[in-house]
Write a protein that binds this DNA or RNA. Structure first.
Lengths: 213, 213
DNA sequence: TAGATTGTTAATCGATTAACAATC
DNA sequence: TAGATTGTTAATCGATTAACAATC
């Protein structure tokens, strides 16, 4: 129905916020909302909200507003969150464990298919439903499964070498971490990385629609 | 010498990248660089580089270029990285441990002064040079030490309640995580959250100069 | 001095906001 | 129909780029 046109990154980066906010509304059984109301609650202008949505086609209805679940589903599709791109995680230290165990891959358009580490202490353990594999098997694994993205949770000094090796294998998308939401109820609070999962969503968008920017 | 004028966030967000790149150059004993060369290596335009730096005053010299260590130091001061704002970390699970243990607080303008968790299993343990304290002592701790920022590493479902409690105590700046650099050697690679520490730097900037936006 | 490169002003480009006609 | 609210065009605002005079 709607056409994928070249849309500016400014717009794309707002989509995860819309998605999250609409999910919240849907959870509270809100079924319709106007651009006016949405803009006020999210701190945008009504104009911007309408412009943003209209980049992808007419989701609304004059005199009525937008259907919440419908709009939410549309954004989900635009972002490509239904895709479940296969991804791997490198590094099973505290950070890797936290991510593998708690990151909602499914909801973010990805599917964890492999975890790698080079420490004999952790190889063979299971995190996030995955056996931790020896790092030196990553080449063969890549060839076989062609993961779309790699999450790197390794010490600073190893990042470059690992990124290079994966790049050599063909990997073109990397990420390093995404975590939980902080609800921005207080407009005078400074919060950085409020929704780091958002960046994973935009990555998913690029994988599905735009390709690497 | 140089005056702090209202500078756009677009510019501020580029400063950590300049800082990192110049640090790299300095490490390799490069002492001067032109806007032309810098822009090519960083993927900006020379115009933009000069505009950016000139928001804060004349760091360069006509016919010569910019002095690398000097420019780096200037950016460090603008960002407020010398400040070492006291901060606390809430949640000492895998994620909290990874952050407390590996995040370069010092270089990012912060100083970790307290870690909190409510699990008896971890209270009393030491991470990042800090005893893990009972979460219910956080109010008294806040009163006494007035930390400037909180890093939240707690499960999704607890984030809102904890953020609210800290807000009630007076906390106005939050962060949830920053990790390692990935060197962007390959222009065709999509990398999200490449330098998440950058957001901590901009937070530091806001704390020192701008206040919450 | 001549060459190089900044600092800065002007032009362009893009994103946000305002306005309003279309229409549910 | 009348009221409400979208979709869309036009106006504004801000950020990036280009150009060039100042000057080291």
């Amino acid at each position: 129905m709607r056409k994928e046109k070249p849309v500016s990154m400014s717009v794309i980066r707002r989509l995860p916020r819309y998605h999250r906010f609409l999910s919240e509304l849907a959870k509270n059984s809100v079924t319709r909302i106007s651009s006016q109301e949405l803009s006020e609650k999210m701190g945008f202008t009504a104009s911007q909200v309408r412009q943003d949505f209209n980049c992808f086609g007419g989701f609304g209805q004059q005199g009525y507003g937008y259907n919440v679940p419908q709009l939410r589903a549309a954004i989900e599709e635009i972002l490509g969150l239904q895709n479940q791109f296969p991804c791997i995680l490198v590094g099973a230290g505290n950070l890797g464990k936290a991510i593998a165990g708690h990151m909602p891959f499914m909801q973010l358009g990805f599917r964890l298919i492999g975890v790698f580490d080079n420490s004999p202490k952790v190889i063979g353990q299971k995190i996030g439903g995955q056996d931790i594999r020896p790092y030196d098997t990553i080449g063969a694994f890549y060839q076989e499964h062609q993961p779309a993205m790699a999450i790197l949770c390794v010490p600073k000094e190893n990042v470059e070498a690992i990124a290079d090796e994966l790049y050599g294998l063909g990997m073109r998308s990397f990420w390093n971490f995404g975590h939980y939401d902080i609800v921005l109820k207080h407009p005078d609070v400074t919060v950085e990385n409020v929704h780091m999962n958002d960046s994973l969503m935009t990555l998913c968008y690029k994988l599905s629609a735009g390709g690497p920017s």
